[in-house]
């Protein structure tokens, strides 16, 4: 079996709005069969990139190929070879689950003879067989999401785009959805492109992650390697005067990174075990009382902070976005 080396080839892809470069000369190759994570803060250009790949948006310059089809010259072929799960809901809630799937099959030209069998298989995969003939308006948020993911698979695309698949869902449902994404990738010989601003989501699902900021890829690697690039340990300190301690420590230590949270101070040091006694000593000498001190391995959040200089958790606008998405689901 001959496999194409890259199912997605992005070449110098650029999108400019007036003076603002939303996507800046992007070059990425996505391998066949991987889950590729696009991670970045709000406005990093993730959704713009995905919209161009899905032929919803025209690039200012550059192009990309999906499964060998050019997104500018052959948009119709590209659309047949991709499945899209949008960030916002996009199902008809006055139709049943089965009707939504059937409609999608018809719009994408799935032969009538195999529609029934295909839909039955998908319903089984997303565990909605017993609810298939209920109107969508009676579904929970998680069930709707599962149906949308299942719908994206009906025409057996080569690539499935998932744009913030778990925004606005409760932790338990998110966990559920993640399991589905993993399972469906195993069962379907499919490449998944995932955009997310959740660190844990990208970490758990992706084979490789591209961190985007200001329209560019800051770094691209496996989650393990990304975390390994932050050689060292993170020391999490809770004291009665974090601010002064931070100043003190910055004079004495050679940090990779330091970061002041609301009530904790996080510093990344080459060797955490050796650093802890010295930090405690330094605090004592300056009459700062340390309440707790913890050593942990770097996570993607640290990687993100390291490469973009800002924390994704501080991004309140994104949280708002999440809330409005919840709201939108709730009002229906």
């Amino acid at each position: 079996m001959t496999k194409m080396p890259h199912v997605i080839e992005i070449q110098n892809l650029t999108k400019t709005y007036k003076d603002f470069k939303a996507v800046d000369n992007l070059n990425i190759n996505v391998d066949n069969g991987e889950i590729f994570g696009l991670l970045g803060p709000n406005g990093a250009g993730k959704t713009t990139t995905v919209s161009m790949l899905c032929t919803i948006l025209k690039p200012t310059s550059g192009t990309a190929k999906i499964d060998g089809h050019d997104i500018i010259k052959e948009p119709s072929k590209v659309r047949k070879s991709i499945g899209i799960v949008f960030q916002d809901p996009s199902i008809d809630d006055r139709l049943t689950g089965r009707e939504n799937l059937l409609m999608h099959a018809n719009l994408y030209g799935v032969p009538t003879s195999i529609q029934k069998e295909r839909i039955a298989r998908i319903l089984k995969l997303i565990e909605l067989e017993d609810r298939a003939d209920d109107l969508l308006r009676t579904y929970s948020g998680g069930m709707r999401r599962r149906l949308e993911i299942g719908r994206g698979l009906i025409h057996q695309p080569k690539v499935l785009f998932l744009d913030e698949p778990t925004v606005g869902l409760d932790p338990q449902t998110r966990d559920h959805i993640w399991r589905y994404i993993k399972d469906l990738k195993e069962a379907n010989d499919i490449t998944v492109v995932l955009t997310t601003h959740y660190m844990d989501e990208a970490d758990r699902l992706s084979d490789r992650i591209a961190i985007m900021d200001h329209g560019k890829v800051v770094i691209l690697d496996t989650p393990q390697k990304l975390k390994a690039t932050l050689e060292g340990d993170v020391v999490v300190i809770k004291s009665n005067n974090n601010k002064n301690l931070e100043e003190l420590l910055s004079k004495w230590f050679n940090f990779t990174k330091q970061h002041l949270e609301k009530d904790t101070l996080e510093v990344t040091v080459p060797n955490g075990r050796n650093a802890i006694p010295r930090i405690v000593e330094l605090a004592n000498q300056n009459s700062i009382y340390i309440e707790s001190i913890v050593l942990r391995e770097p996570n993607l959040e640290d990687v993100f902070l390291h490469y973009t200089g800002c924390s994704i958790r501080d991004d309140t606008t994104k949280e708002l976005h999440g809330l409005s998405a919840i709201h939108r689901r709730a009002i229906r």
Binding site: I84, S90, I91, D92, L107, Y108, G109, R332
Partner: peptide, 13 residues
């Protein structure tokens, strides 16, 4: 309003 238009607009027709 409810986003279904996107599903139609990205379909290959």
């Amino acid at each position: 309003e409810f986003g279904f238009m996107k599903e139609i607009l990205v379909a290959p027709i």
